[in-house]
Design a binder for these strands. Structure first.
Length: 296
DNA sequence: TTCCAGGAGAGAG
DNA sequence: CTCTCTCATGGA
């Protein structure tokens, strides 16, 4: 087991439970998840993180990797100060203090958010779990069993029926198309990591099954582009009620959000998104309206 | 039974 | 450009 010391302004709970990763399970005080082919067990005691891995790790490079994965090196308090512009954001930041945006493995993120469309988090988690059980590699850590996320090569050669049996629904075709595009080199994940945000987003959106929202999720949750703003039904509802008008277009929301929150808009979005899930009454349109007009 | 979920694509206007 | 319809699945 290794420890990471002096981890300040960090919440393992909110970081791993905020719907940006579908792979973490909490058992008692620890989180178990599969990250790039190994099981990790992570727990937080104040400013110390305790981490165990199912594979042997070189401590120096492992700590370096974890700090990147968990976004620990970034000055998040500075970003939050810049987007803390109103009572609603203030409450979200206060409630979710320490939540960070992960830098997840690219292929798993691409596949996961293709599967996320018109779907809900518990079901997305179930689909990914079944895909991994059936097509990934079995991993163990101190009696805990889980499975690696299947590679593009594996998913590219599976039958459509096999993917459907995991509960993917109509998204099976999108998933298989993406896997085959990666194998053929048409969707180059290594090249994408070198691209700017607009370049990466455009490259992703050329892929069948990846629209603007999913592309933004991949840019934000894997590629570290904090200017990305995934607009799902919740975010749309919040921006319409709190800042704009009903039936606002995506372009309106995008332009407002960028000018209002600045470069850290991706972080602002994640705090808004998770806050309405932690405090459901704060997603109520009438409640939001009261906030907007300063009643609450 | 109908509605909804971290939507995208095709078609019409 | 915007609007609408459909797509598969399961829980509420």
């Amino acid at each position: 087991m290794i420890q990471i010391q002096n981890v300040t302004d960090f919440s393992l709970k909110y970081t791993l439970e905020s719907g940006q990763s579908f792979r973490w399970n909490r058992i008692e005080n620890a989180y178990y998840g599969v990250v790039e082919g190994r099981i990790l067990k992570i727990s937080q005691e104040g400013t110390i993180l305790c981490v165990e891995s199912s594979t042997d790790e070189d401590e120096v490079s492992f700590v370096s990797y974890l700090r990147h994965y968990l976004d620990i090196g970034r000055d998040v308090p500075k970003i939050l100060a810049e987007v803390n512009n109103d009572a609603y954001m203030h409450r979200a930041i206060e409630k979710l203090w320490g939540m960070r945006i992960l830098n997840q493995e690219l292929w798993e993120t691409v596949a996961s958010f293709i599967l996320s469309q018109n779907n809900n988090v518990p079901r997305i988690r179930g689909i990914i779990r079944r895909l991994s059980e059936r097509f990934g590699e079995r991993l163990t850590l101190a009696g805990y069993v889980d499975y690696s996320f299947p590679s593009p090569d594996v998913l590219a050669t599976e039958t459509n029926e096999a993917l459907l049996a995991c509960g993917t629904g109509y998204r099976a075709n999108y998933l298989q198309d993406a896997a085959q595009a990666v194998v053929r080199g048409e969707l180059s994940l290594t090249a994408m990591k070198q691209m700017s945000y607009p370049e990466a987003k455009e490259a992703l959106m050329r892929q069948n099954g990846i629209g603007e929202k999913v592309a933004d999720c991949i840019c934000l949750f894997s590629l570290g582009h904090l200017a990305a703003l995934p607009i799902d039904v919740w975010i749309k509802r919040i921006f319409e009620t709190l800042y704009l008008r009903q039936r606002a277009t995506h372009r309106e929301i995008r332009e407002f959000a960028h000018s209002y929150f600045g470069a850290g808009v991706g972080y602002a979005q994640q705090y808004l998104f998770h806050y309405v899930h932690e405090c459901p009454n704060w997603a109520d349109v009438e409640h939001l309206s009261l906030i907007r007009h300063g009643v609450l």
